[in-house]
Design a protein around this nucleic acid. Structure first.
Length: 524
RNA sequence: GGCCCCAUCGUCUAGUCAGGCCUAGGACAUCGGAUUUUCGAUCCGGUAACGGGGGUUCGAAUCCCCCUGGGGUCACCA
C-alpha cells in the first residue's frame, strides 16, 4: 500500500454535449495533482451506454480542455499505452473481469425482475429497514442456472457483497471513513445486454490504467465502498482516494446543476451572467446555440473570459495556498497545489470573485493579445470585415489601448460599437442626449468648440486637451460643461473612455460630422 | 427515511491535526471618503463571522459529548 507509484490521475467525463463548470474544477484538480508531481493526466471517456453521435457529445468537452490549456497525456485523439480510452471500446476487459468474479463466486447471475426488486424495495421501506436484495438467484442449482441462461432469461450480474465486512478507507481530504457492508445490496455490475455499469467499469479501468489517485467530487463518496470491495475482489492495488467538495450554486450549498437553471436565473449574481449572455450572444450571432449558460465552460469562452481568469477562480474553489494569496498563474498553482490543502465543505461558485480574477488577468494582458481576443467578437458582430487589414487592426488596437482597464471581457469591446458604425447610425442614449445636449447653452458650446477643432491644425490627444482647456478658460466654464455634451454628440453615450482619446481615435472628420448630425437632431 | 459528509464575516477562505502568537487574518462583494471630464481604475477607511449547549483545561475557533442546521447519496445513470 505504501509502495510509491508514479502519479497518474484521470478525469472520466461521460459525453453529455457540454462541459460542466463543476466537472471542470474536478478535472483541474486532477490535472494539477498530476502536473505537480510530474505525473500523468488521463482523459477517459465514460460512454458505457452506446452513444448516438459521440463526436457531437464529446466535442465541447475536449474544446473546454483545450481552451483552458489543460492538456492530457493519454486519451482521445492521442491514445496511449492503455488504449482504448473509450469505455465503449473496452468491453473485453469488463467481460474478462466479470468472468473471473463469477468463477470465484464473487459475482452471480441474478434473475430477479425489476418488478420483484421494486416490490422488495417498497416492502423494506414500509418496514423501515434498509433494503437488501434477496439473493434468491444464488440458490439456483448450477443446472437450473445454466438452463435459464441458455434459455435467454433476462438477468444481470451482481457483485456478491461480503456482508460481514466493514470497508475502511483513509480519504485524503475526508479522513477516515467506514461503511458497514451488512447494509449494502449487491450492486449490479453488468446489464443483461453485456454492458458494464459505471461503478464496475470505473474500477476495471482505474486498475488497468494504473491510476494512483482517484480525485473526484464528494457526491461519489457513496460509490466508494462498492468500488473498494470490487478492487479487493479483483486483487487490485487500491488507488488513493480524494473526495473533493462539489461546486455549489452561488451563495448556496446545493450542488450546481444544469437542471436548476431556471432557479438560477433568479439568483442576483447569476442573473447578471444570464443578462450578459442575452446581450452579447445575439450580437455575435449565437442566438441559436440554445442554452449557453454559466454552468457550461463554453459560456465563459464564448463571452470572452480569459482561461487564466477562469482557472484562477476554479482553483480557489475549495483550495487555498495560505491566508493571503489569491492571484496565481497556472504555473504558480501547479507549483503549490497539494491535496492536503483542499477544503472539506462545498464551495459556491462566486461570479463576483470570478470577475475580479478575470479583471486582474485582463489588465496584465498585452495589447496585442487583447486585440487577438477582441477581433473575433468584432468580426462576428460585423463591425469589421472577416479578414481585417492592418489598418483596421491598428485602429482596433488603439481603441483597446485607450480603453485600458475598462475592457474586462473580450466581449466588452462590443459596447464601444460607436467606433465602428457609420456616423448616421449612432444610437443615442436619449436620457443622456436630453440631459447633456438639450441643456441650456450646451449646443452652442459644442458648436463653437467644433469650430475650434476645425481650425486647429493638429488633432492629437494633448493638443485637443490644451484646446479645450483654453476654450473653457476664456469662457470661464468648467471642463464638464463642454465635455459631457461633446461626448454625447460624438458617441451618443454618456460614458466611455477619456474624451480626448475618444476624439483622437475618431479623427477630425468623423467628430465634426457627428457633431453636425447631433446638432441637427436637436431640431427634431 | 437509511447510510454518509459538512459547519469561521453576505461569499471564497486562513487558523482546527501538534489548544495560548486569534480583542479571529486575507480576498471578493458592500458602505464611506480621496482622486478623476463621465465610466472604469487606483488609494485610504468602515461594517461584518467561530450555529447552540455541555464538558476537559490555568486557557478552546481549535480536544470530547449532545443538539441543531445544511448537503450528498440511495438505479439494469454517470
Amino acid at each position: 500500500m505504501n509502495t510509491p507509484r508514479p502519479v497518474r490521475t484521470r478525469f472520466a467525463p461521460s459525453p453529455t454535449g457540454y462541459m460542466h463548470i463543476g466537472g471542470m474544477r474536478t478535472a483541474l484538480f486532477n490535472w494539477l495533482w498530476a502536473r505537480h508531481n510530474n505525473g500523468t493526466f488521463i482523459l477517459r471517456i465514460d460512454d458505457t451506454d452506446e452513444q448516438r453521435n459521440l463526436d457531437a457529445a464529446l466535442g465541447p468537452i475536449l474544446r473546454a480542455f483545450k481552451w483552458l490549456g489543460l492538456t492530457w497525456d493519454e486519451g482521445p485523439e492521442i491514445d496511449g499505452p492503455y488504449a482504448p480510452y473509450f469505455q465503449s471500446q473496452r468491453k473485453p476487459l469488463y467481460h474478462a473481469a466479470v468472468e473471473k468474479l463469477i468463477d470465484e463466486k464473487k459475482a452471480y447471475h441474478c434473475f430477479d425482475t425489476q418488478e420483484e426488486l421494486a416490490a422488495e424495495r417498497a416492502a423494506a421501506e414500509k418496514e423501515k429497514r434498509p433494503f437488501l436484495n434477496s439473493r434468491r438467484s444464488l440458490e439456483l442449482s448450477e443446472l437450473d442456472r445454466n438452463k435459464r441462461i441458455a434459455r435467454g432469461d433476462p438477468h444481470v450480474i451482481r457483485f456478491l457483497v461480503p456482508r460481514d465486512q466493514v470497508v475502511k478507507l483513509d480519504d485524503v481530504v475526508r479522513g477516515h471513513v467506514e461503511w458497514d457492508c451488512s447494509l449494502m445490496p449487491d450492486p449490479v455490475i453488468m446489464r443483461g445486454n453485456g454492458s458494464p455499469l459505471y461503478n464496475f467499469a470505473s474500477v476495471i479501468d482505474d486498475a488497468q490504467m494504473q491510476i494512483s489517485h482517484v480525485i473526484r467530487a464528494e457526491e461519489h463518496l457513496s460509490n466508494t465502498p462498492v468500488q473498494v470491495l470490487l478492487h479487493q475482489a479483483l486483487g487490485n492495488e487500491l488507488p488513493i482516494f480524494a473526495h473533493i467538495p462539489y461546486v455549489a450554486a452561488p451563495a448556496s450549498k446545493e450542488k450546481l446543476s444544469k437542471r436548476k437553471l431556471e432557479q438560477y436565473r433568479k439568483n442576483p449574481q447569476f442573473k447578471k451572467m444570464f443578462e450578459r449572455a442575452d446581450e452579447v450572444f445575439p450580437k455575435i450571432g449565437l442566438t441559436n446555440v440554445g442554452g449557453l449558460d454559466p454552468v457550461m465552460v463554453e459560456y465563459y469562452e464564448r463571452i470572452g473570459y480569459l482561461p487564466q481568469g477562469v482557472l484562477n477562480a476554479l482553483a480557489r474553489l475549495g483550495w487555498s495556498l495560505d491566508d493571503k494569496t489569491e492571484i496565481m498563474s497556472l504555473d504558480e498553482i501547479v507549483k503549490n497545489f497539494t491535496l492536503d490543502r483542499v477544503v472539506k465543505s462545498p464551495a459556491g461558485l462566486d461570479p463576483d470573485k470570478l470577475n475580479s480574477f478575470q479583471a486582474h488577468w485582463m489588465m496584465q494582458l498585452p495589447v496585442d493579445e487583447k486585440l487577438a481576443g477582441c477581433l473575433p467578437f468584432l468580426i462576428a458582430a460585423k463591425y469589421i470585415p472577416a479578414e481585417p487589414d492592418d489598418e483596421t487592426k491598428f485602429y482596433v488596437s488603439n481603441i483597446i489601448g485607450q480603453l485600458g482597464e475598462r475592457l474586462k471581457l473580450f466581449s466588452d469591446i462590443l459596447e464601444y460599437d460607436d467606433f465602428f458604425v457609420d456616423d448616421d447610425k449612432i444610437i443615442y442614449d436619449e436620457k443622456a442626449f436630453d440631459k447633456r445636449l438639450r441643456a441650456p447653452g450646451a449646443a452652442d458650446l459644442v458648436r463653437e468648440f467644433a469650430a475650434e477643432m476645425e481650425k486647429n491644425q493638429s488633432f492629437n490627444i494633448n493638443d485637443l486637451d490644451d484646446l479645450l482647456h483654453k476654450f473653457v478658460e476664456e469662457k470661464q466654464l468648467k471642463l464638464g460643461d463642454v465635455i459631457h455634451p461633446l461626448r454625447v454628440a460624438v458617441t451618443g453615450k454618456a460614458v466611455g473612455m477619456g474624451l480626448f482619446q475618444l476624439l483622437w481615435l475618431l479623427g477630425r472628420e468623423r467628430c465634426l460630422n457627428r457633431i453636425r448630425l447631433s446638432l441637427a437632431r436637436l431640431e427634431k
